[in-house]
Design a binder for these strands. Structure first.
Lengths: 245, 245
DNA sequence: GCCGCTAATATGTATAGACATAAGTCCGAG
DNA sequence: CTCGGACTTATGTCTATACATATTAGCGGC
């Protein structure tokens, strides 16, 4: 869990535009250039590095796209000030997550029904058709790891009606057959009720991490899934740096 | 909380390289081009769009950097297959988050001590010096919103010893004075103990979302903060699309 | 068949020049 | 003094060209 101090300043990227980019990036990250400071004009960097403006521009544009700097015509390029703490969150596929720990993975289907929509999210998912509703438990070795409640749109994935989700977990099947292009994740904490607690083999009212994910493919709702993780057993790790802009 | 179906195909970005980029992106997101498929060679796109290779290259390189496609010399460019569910998580500044909801923000400092390190994370943070330890509550209007436990490295931020954190919340002060360049966030669920519950004005053992963040600046530990949110009152939202690679 | 050389090919990087566009500056007309 | 328009400047986009580099196909010799 320790963080190795990154070696900075040492590497010399082969490509010049990348060197320019990392040079400036280093100046910003080290604090030598603070938010609001102007970085040198393109024509100054052109002289400094003895290269053409395209090369400099490529470097600075990349930084701009990464949100580190802000470019303003006629004025110059400025170090952006960080706004929100933003991080990349990996929400792993449960099977690979569990097998990556050297444990056996198993998905046990508890129930599966087809039903008409009866809620806002359901209506949007269904698009006038019925929905597939699944409930199951992901196991790591013999221990319940997560409880999953899932709705699948039979409009987006008609084949889902004929799949045996006792064989393959719905997440894995969907990723293979109806990959999503947009997603929204919500993360909250909640106490498990008696029924869920029994399925997870934990005491009632244990604090659990609830992850709800809704996915779309080209604007059409594909699935909505709620996964409940016993709080002590699991945590999500998000890595990385500041978003600016 | 509804998701408006994105209008695709309609917009025509001013810049040609962006149009090429969004064209290909659309083909990938719509599924017309699946993982592993080869996209047209640069020279083909050059003809298709009637432009120079630089322009095409810029578009494809951007897609490659975004992880949507993979480029292989001599072979061509291929649609990358998505690997993990990855999303951008916004962890907002609490003040702006609360004020953005039209509520009053207030930070109340409960205690502040300087102490020598006594744990792994603490030792790394301290770097042989003492640490500043803070405890406080973020309020939205008159209601407790989050409980914060924070360690600040006096090596990375010696000025912190002289700051009145009753006036400005530590997070805001740090962001202003010692911005971080790397961070690690952990998210878990837990039941509050009696002392924390009293500070948050909630029943003991309520499920809470626990967010722990450690930040560094150029490899030097800056701060470690644990924030406890009453589970019902708050959730984190992560947006966006698949990470590939 | 296997090794190593050569040739072909697609991408990677860079250049110099051109014109477009947005946004300040400055000055003159009213 | 203020409102517009002309000028200036820095970035934004694009071209045509050149050479570098990685990877594969194919061929010749053993």
């Amino acid at each position: 869990m320790n963080k190795p101090a990154p070696i900075v300043e040492a590497e010399a990227p082969a490509a010049l535009h990348q060197r320019i980019r990392t040079d400036i990036e280093a100046k910003i990250l080290s604090g030598e250039l603070g938010p609001g400071d102007r970085i040198p004009f393109e024509h100054e960097l052109t002289e400094l590095y003895g290269c053409s403006r395209m090369t400099v521009s490529k470097a600075i544009s990349a930084l701009a796209e990464a949100g580190l700097i802000e470019r303003r015509r006629r004025a110059g390029s400025f170090v952006a000030r960080p706004r929100v703490h933003s991080a990349v969150l990996d929400i792993p596929d449960l099977r690979s997550e569990i097998e990556g720990r050297g444990q056996d993975y198993r998905f046990e289907l508890i129930s599966t029904v087809q039903r008409a929509p009866d809620g806002v999210a359901e209506v949007e998912l269904a698009g006038g058709r019925t929905l597939l509703a699944l409930r199951g438990v992901h196991y790591a070795d013999a221990r319940p790891f997560a409880l999953e409640d899932r709705l699948i749109s039979l409009r987006a994935a008609p084949e889902a009606a004929r799949v045996d989700f006792g064989e393959i977990s719905p997440g894995a099947w969907l990723l293979e057959h109806i990959p999503w292009t947009e997603a929204e994740n919500r993360i909250a904490a909640m106490s498990v009720d008696a029924a869920d607690a029994r399925l997870l083999a934990i005491p009632t009212k244990t604090a659990c991490l609830a992850v709800e994910r809704r996915t779309w493919r080209g604007g059409v709702g594909v699935t909505r899934v709620r996964q409940l993780f016993p709080g002590e057993a699991y945590d999500l790790v998000a890595r990385f740096g500041p978003s600016r802009g």
